[in-house]
Every structure is written in C-alpha cells, then in structure tokens.
Amino acid sequence: MRSVLGSRPWLTLALIALVLAAMPFVIDDNYLLHILILFLIFAVFATGWNLTLGILGQKTLGHHAFFAIGAYTTALLSGTVGLSPWLTLWLGVLAAALAGGLIGIPILRIRSMPHVAIVTLAFAEIVKLLLANWKDVTRGELGLWGIPPFPAIEIGGTTIRFGAGQIAGSFALALLAFVAVHALVLWLLRGRFGLTMVAIRDSQLAAESLSIDLTRSKLAAFALSAAIVGLSGGLYAHYLQILTPTSTAGPEMLVTLLAMIILGGVGTFFGPIFGALVLTALTEYLREYGDLRMLIYGATVTLFVILLPRGVAGLLTRRGRPAAAGDEPATAPET
C-alpha cells in the first residue's frame, strides 16, 4: 500500500490542499485561476479513473463516457427540466455510477486486458454517437448551451457566485470537490477496501482464496470510479456551461486523461494529480508553439512511457527506497 500512497499521505494531501487554497490570494490573474480550476476538475477525473486503471488493475479505456454521462445528465436535468444544479449534480453522479455498473458486468467477466480495453473504448464511442445523434435533446455537435451555473449561496453575508466568469466561487467549489474526493479515496484505500483492491490487482487467484467476493468488490470499485468521473463531468458542465459530444466523450479526452495518469504514475494516489497539473500547464504553455502543440503532446506521452515508466510519482518514491517486489502488477499475457 505504501507504493500506492507514499509515506504520510494525509499530510501530503493536506499540504496540497493548503497550497491550492492559497492560490487565489497569491495569484491576481483570473486566467491562471481558470487554468487551475480546469486542473482541479481533471485531477478528480484522473483519480477516479486511476481507481480502476491502476489500483484495481482493470485497463479500461472508456471512462470519458462516464464523464459525458455525468455532464450531460446534470446539464439536461437542470437546463432543460429546470431542477436545481445542486441536486442534478448528484443525479449525474448516480447516472455515471449506474452506467459503470452496467458496463462493469460484462467487462469484469473478462480477464484479457485487450478485450477490456477495446470493449470500453467501443462503449465510449457509442455514448458519444448517441449524444451526437439525439439532437432533439442534446443538440448534437452544435453543443448544449444554456446550462445554468450553480446557484449563488450566501455564507456570512458574502454571496458566492459560480459559473464561467465567476472565478473565485468556481475555484472554491472545484477545490472543495478535489479535496473531498481525494480524502474519500484515501480513507477507502487505507481501509479494508484498499487492501481488497490491491489484492485483486496483484493476484486474482490469491484474492479468491482469501474469500474476497471478487465480482462484488470489483463492481463496487468500478461504480465508485465511474461516479467520481461523473462528478468531475458535472463540475465541468456547470463551470464551462457548454458541452459537445466530441469534447466530452471524444477520443481526445481519452488521450488527455490517459496522458495525465501515465505521466503522473499509474496506480499511485498522488501521481494523477501531478499528471493533471503538469499536462494542464503544459497544454497552456504549448499554445505558444501553435502547430507544434499536439506533436509535443503526443511525443511527451510516448517518451514518458519509454523513459519514465513509473511516471513522476515513481521518480519521487524511487529515491528513498527500491520499490518492493510485487508493487507493480505483473500483467503478463493472460492466456
């Protein structure tokens, strides 16, 4: 578990939260804060996906579908039906969790990694096409606009507003979600749930012999992972207030998020956070390079896999002590 969490994970998380909380007071630049909000949302996405990808060891490639499901559910229920975004956000999370359970059933029967990868990828493609074709409701690729921001709330005489132009409120909300999700995941991983997950990842057979109810544990983890990703989708929808099928469930979302997790370190708790930060910053930095941007982006991912297979987190932990054997799942051909 140390290989996943590092030493003193609670302290580290608290420090990260503290540094982030200080940002709006240090930075007087709405654009930078906007980038940080996107980073927070994507870090939640990356952590949610990493639960299945790295910690459960199921190499799924379709989590952007849950992002889209979470985002579109809350957007439609609040914008079209007219419910409060504070409520519909959770309905979006629920929808994503249900979808996760649904796609989890056939997937968890399969042990072959490529099957899992391709079936989940096809699932995401179907979700994207359904959103694009269901024009009467989603407006297809033209984009769903008119998504309301979270209604303003009042705390101690100060009104906090949310939505695209409201940087301070949006930042606070994204940070709250970021901290809550990571605290929840950390708490779960430190408990029996985490041990079960790692046992499953490292050896299915051993886990079975420990009388862990494999299917139920895996389904629960899968649904939780989908729910967290759905939450990030909901936050995204009410912050940017515009959604298109391609920008939420398209292959580029997959590439971006995969790159974040790989860069940070698959299967580590803090890795995806680093990955999200580095790549969000890199994407912005690369704007200066115009046409070269996607070339550098793609090459970075490939080079990281070749040169730094454990990601940034691996680089940081390696220094102290050699990784214990069995930390990495040995996913040899499962034939």
């Binding site: 580290t12 540094v19 940002m23 630049d29 930078l32 980038i35 680093f274 930060l277 910053a281």
Partner: peptide
C-alpha cells in the same frame, strides 16, 4: 516537501509565462 515545491514552481513558471 517535494510535492509542494513542485506545485509552487509550476505556478511560478505559469506566472512567468504570462509576463
């Protein structure tokens, strides 16, 4: 803390970029 340092330096880089 390495993590905090990384965060700070990333923020500083980002700030410098916008100058």
């Amino acid at each position: 803390m390495t993590i905090r340092r990384t965060l700070m330096s990333a923020a500083a880089t980002a700030l410098a970029l916008g100058a």
